[in-house]
């Protein structure tokens, strides 16, 4: 829009033509990605929305239009609300813990300590495992390995975090953060290394201490990294499925069932495909609103800094 508005009235006809010709070329470049995106996501999404108004079970050859019945059901579905709460908490804690921990790990690894590469590699290593394996490993850790520390030192710490509804969230957060902090740490580390060193020096000359440097230089300069990490962690957490399936299976009871897991189970186990579609639509609407706010806030903050 800026191009046409800023053009001088005298050359407007000529410029417009050129702009249009250019726009066609830009559009041609845009076309292939658009095709991929539409086929892989948008058409299935529309099909899903259509399904949500039917009574299709996902297997049967029959499919009848039933209007908003499925949507009305959702608001009476305690499990959906519970799973939503769980997912929300999981996301909030993850976003805070992972951001803060990754940030500080990065700062510490950006200092002049020895064997940095070794540390970095170790902390990054869990990222290379699939969440399914992480789930299996931590199930084993909480179930057998850590309790055996109790035996060794005659302690009685409750390590089995997956066995009670009160601790299962903590247990999953530990496993999830163990896996992902290293990943975001790397992004922060990259951001830190991109901060021009002379800014720090200038600050030192002005008599600033490390804390002032940290607040006034490091954090603002990492603005874009914070945006990427926050969005990445939040969306990743909202989609959590494999880790939970492989570790707690949603239990004990229903206490660690994530929304995706509830939707997946409803579609594939309970064979209520259309109802699951309706839940997906509601979940997506919430996610989109949330994403919109997040993007606005983060981008705005970035500009201000």
């Amino acid at each position: 829009m800026s191009i046409t508005i800023s053009s001088k009235p005298t050359s407007i006809v000529h410029k417009k033509k050129r702009v249009n010709a250019r726009n066609i070329q830009y559009f041609l470049l845009l076309l292939p990605p658009l095709v991929f995106f539409i086929v892989a996501m948008i058409i299935p999404l529309i099909m899903g929305i259509y399904n949500s108004f039917t009574d299709w079970d996902g297997i049967s050859l029959e499919k009848n239009w039933i209007g908003f019945t499925n949507y009305i059901e959702i608001f009476k579905d305690e499990m959906f609300i519970e799973s939503f709460k769980f997912t929300g908490l999981f996301m909030i804690f993850n976003t805070i813990i992972q951001n803060v921990a990754a940030f500080f790990f990065a700062v510490m690894l950006d200092s002049s300590i020895k064997a940095k590469n070794f540390y970095r590699t170790i902390i990054f290593a869990p990222v290379l495992l699939s969440p399914i394996l992480v789930g299996q490993i931590w199930t084993k850790m909480y179930g057998t390995i850590l309790p055996s520390i109790n035996d060794l030192f005659a302690l009685s710490i409750n390590f089995n975090l997956f066995s009670s509804p009160n601790t299962v969230l903590t247990g999953l957060l530990v496993a999830n953060n163990w896996q992902w902090i290293g990943y975001w740490m790397l992004i922060y580390l990259a951001g830190l290394q991109a901060v021009p060193k002379d800014i720090y020096e200038a600050c030192t000359v002005d008599g600033g201490n490390w804390w002032q440097k940290f607040i006034h230089i490091t954090i603002p300069m990492l603005g874009p990294s914070i945006t990427i990490c926050t969005i990445g962690i939040a969306t990743g957490s909202l989609k959590v499925y494999e880790l939970i399936v492989a570790s707690t299976g949603g239990g004990p009871g229903d206490s660690s069932k994530s929304t995706i897991m509830h939707i997946y189970d409803t579609a594939f186990m309970s064979q209520q495909s259309s109802y699951a579609s309706a839940m997906s639509v509601v979940f997506l609407l919430v996610l989109l609103i949330f994403a919109f706010i997040q993007l606005k806030v983060l981008r705005k903050r970035e500009v201000e800094l």
Binding site: M41, P44, N51, Y241, Y264, S277, F283, L284, L287
Partner: peptide, 17 residues
Amino acid sequence: AGIMIPYQVIFVPMFVL
């Protein structure tokens, strides 16, 4: 907007398509 769509929730139609 697509960032927010977890592909697990559109799985059945994705598979049919």
